[in-house]
Design a protein around this nucleic acid. Sequence first.
DNA 1: TTGTACGCGTTATCAA
DNA 2: TTGATAACGCGTACAA
Lengths: 355, 355
Amino acid sequence: MNRKKNSITVADVARAANVSKATAARVLGGYGVASESTRRSVIEAADRLGYQPNELARSMSTGRTGLIGVVVGDIENAFFSRAVRGISDTARAAGLNVVIANSGERPEQEREMVSVLLRQRVAGLIVAPTDDRDVRHLKDAIKAGTPVVTLDRWVPDLGADGVCGGDHAAATEVMEHLLVNGHRRIAYVTAVDLTDGRLSDLSDIPISAVRERVRGFMDAMHGTGIANSATFVRGGAVDSRSIDGIIDGLLTDEQRFTAILASDSLIGAEIYRSLSARGIRLPKDMSLVSWFDADWTRVTSPPVSIIDQPTYLFGQTAVKRLIARLEGQAIPPDQIVIPTPFIARGSTGKSRTTG
Amino acid sequence: MNRKKNSITVADVARAANVSKATAARVLGGYGVASESTRRSVIEAADRLGYQPNELARSMSTGRTGLIGVVVGDIENAFFSRAVRGISDTARAAGLNVVIANSGERPEQEREMVSVLLRQRVAGLIVAPTDDRDVRHLKDAIKAGTPVVTLDRWVPDLGADGVCGGDHAAATEVMEHLLVNGHRRIAYVTAVDLTDGRLSDLSDIPISAVRERVRGFMDAMHGTGIANSATFVRGGAVDSRSIDGIIDGLLTDEQRFTAILASDSLIGAEIYRSLSARGIRLPKDMSLVSWFDADWTRVTSPPVSIIDQPTYLFGQTAVKRLIARLEGQAIPPDQIVIPTPFIARGSTGKSRTTG
DNA sequence: TTGTACGCGTTATCAA
DNA sequence: TTGATAACGCGTACAA
């Protein structure tokens, strides 16, 4: 066993302070009792030697790591990085440390990351599950005693708490706004991979957040007597190229679309860019609404109407719930819905066909 | 000692497979030798019981964690989150895991986070140091055998490798562009806290990246015979309010400023917004350049000229260097400079005073 | 108030 | 090819 670094241990400190290992451990660990004099000499010896407690050994001994694992879809997405900030700040304040991992919105990688974190013996997990139908790894974690809180997404039969936005309500709110302004041909654009880019059934959408929004979208459409609203949903919006393709499709469609809903701010930005490049003016030629209050939505002309998702709060709430679980609260798992209000800005106006 | 979760251990697997602990450990750990038959029965027992190796115990035994610690200024800043992505991807590919922490650009918190990571026994550290003059914690880490690579910033006497942008060169390039276009009254806006918001000496800037840019900025100004260029540097740009104040100051200054350099993309976005709100037109009334190719710079009208910092590459490079250190390469620590080219877009044009 | 001795789950050494 | 057994650094009954 070739130890690489030989860091200072309690034994070293004990020796230097002429006390037993146990005594040194007690004052350094801040538990048990010790006389003022020995306490002083131990502490003196400790920072003379530059003692740094070994958190690994401590965890082995106590059985708890004080670590919480977080698996997000993409840390580069401000949606998630802000949530991570909320998680970190709140966890830190509670004396917990945070380990972050990316799933890249890929189920295999999500499973892999969860496994890594479990082997690291995290006390609990916060995960934004990539696919509703593929959550056995999360169920296993829960069964093995590691509480899980889902972030931004809700998986009913998982048995975990979930913190999500009010997706159906937000979609309804946006649609009301658009319908009142005379819009009827409205498209919903998402990154979700749909067969052929088109939606055949709601259950094809494996992420509850998106599914609920689309459900709200379609409910509203049906309410106005539009039957084929499923054809107004476009999937596969994953990069500039695919989004250019979708925009081209929408612009040349026999349905003369007057408004677009972007399922997240990355898609929103690409749509904005694509429309600008094609000389489409907002809101005159087209209205645009994006989920998430991203920086870019405030500097465009006109600024872009958004659904405000307070993801810092999402994260904060998720941690609080997780901590409650860690403390042994045995209430049934449930869904915590955080309101995500629609904020109208300049990118939405009256439909050109009526206004 | 109340163990909370009693996970399956090698001992359990060994018992189930009717072999000794040592044998089970060998096949599960993938080291040593074992006959094909025992290997099979051990593996069968392992995944029948759902064995998950305890990484903590493994680390205790081997003395290495396979963890690398990262301390960034703010994970919410796309500059850093992209770097973190570069770090994660590269580290993961090398079989290392990543623990991320925020310093909030505050020295105390940076020290605290480094300490936390060290206690976690990370194999190495990647840090964006908040203050050049306050790096004893990093020196201590290095001395104790944990290699450090600084990110985006270079601290000469630290004895650590550093991955940075070509800050002086980029500033020079931008300034050439602006000077050629007739600009002379150019302001540099940074978040760095300067006494009274004004710069008295370059050494007041505790972050090499900013210092080098300002140095390039002032060199170029001096080159045109402008002596008091230090007064063109404005500090304390930390939020909307302070930036509004700075913009107001610049617009009413007796120097009729025609161009502004934003030290990062958060500042850039706020400046853009502040200028727009005041009816200042780009580039007619004012030219603007921002560091970092943030999303928002591409959707404004006109799009904003930037200095492109490939921070994914920064992160990737930092990890590679760190791994080289972990493998024991004993070359002297040095600075790795990554080019950060100026990309002219619509926000920079001829100075109104000459054009 | 202090010290002894064992356990946590692994790896690694050395005999068998 | 296997199995006992001692580390690793810390917490913690229990005894002194």
